[in-house]
Simulated scan of single mutants.
Amino acid sequence: MSPAHVIEPTYEAIKRRLMHGHWPPGTRLEAARIADLLHVSITPVRDSLYRLTGERMVDFTHGEGFHAPRMTESDLRGMLELHLVLMLAALATQVRDSITPVGRLDKGSDGFGLLFLAIARRSGNAELASCIAGLGDRLHIARLADTEILGDTADEHGALEAAYSKNATHPEVRALLLHYHERRAQEAAAYIRHITA
């Protein structure tokens, strides 16, 4: 196992590249090449790839090695459905009168991802928040295509963040979450075309 001061930056660098589609779906992830790219030894790369396999961010097949994950329309719809179920569970179990601040939105940051994580953390259930964060990381590559597929989503994001920030009623936030997920599930084919292009 690699020391933490090497493994964590290596893991984060590989994960970030996966989340942003640096490697097309199905691309073989060769540890030696990634090590050269990141200027580290092969050991922290392998350790990171195994960890990312456990998080379902990387596919691994014995005899074939590591690959950037492939995603089908059915996979995307399934992930969106599970994400909605988890978000509704977080909403239903939220700690009243406590608002977890939404992370700072910088250029290139995932506004919806930060908002969903804030809602998840408000539930007070660390396991639920961890599941939502992990699934959100896997969905990030699809969210990158939001503007191209759906157009400007700023109003949608603003409405959801405003409802969350003002401690809106459960049905109001629930309706916004349903709308968010349904819009993307209906366009799953377009998202997959974009991801695999």
Rank of each mutant, 00 (worst) to 15 (best):
P3R: 12
A4E: 15
H5T: 03
I7R: 14
P9K: 07
K15P: 02
L18S: 01
H20A: 00
G21Y: 06
W23K: 02
P24S: 11
L29G: 02
L29I: 05
E30D: 10
L38I: 05
H39N: 15
T43G: 15
T43C: 11
T43D: 14
V45C: 07
S48G: 04
Y50F: 12
R51N: 12
R51H: 15
T53S: 04
G54M: 04
R56D: 10
R56Q: 13
M57W: 11
V58S: 02
F60K: 00
H62W: 11
G65H: 00
A68T: 08
S74P: 00
R77K: 01
E81T: 12
H83A: 15
V85G: 10
V85M: 13
L86W: 09
M87T: 02
A90Q: 03
Q94Y: 06
V95Y: 08
R96M: 10
D97V: 02
I99L: 13
T100P: 04
G108V: 06
D110N: 12
D110Q: 09
F112G: 07
F116H: 11
L117K: 10
L117M: 13
A118K: 07
I119M: 04
A120N: 01
R121Y: 09
R122Q: 11
R122Y: 07
S123P: 10
A126F: 11
E127A: 12
L128D: 00
C131R: 12
A133W: 14
R138D: 02
L139S: 13
H140P: 05
I141F: 08
A142Q: 11
A142G: 12
R143C: 09
L144F: 04
L144A: 01
D146W: 03
T147C: 13
I149T: 09
L150K: 05
G151I: 11
D152H: 14
D152K: 15
A154G: 13
H157M: 06
H157P: 03
G158C: 04
E161C: 10
A163C: 07
Y164T: 02
S165R: 08
S165E: 03
T169S: 15
T169F: 01
V173A: 06
R174W: 00
H179M: 09
H181S: 01
R184M: 01
A185V: 00
Q186Y: 13
A190Y: 07
Y191E: 07
Y191D: 08
I195F: 05
T196M: 09
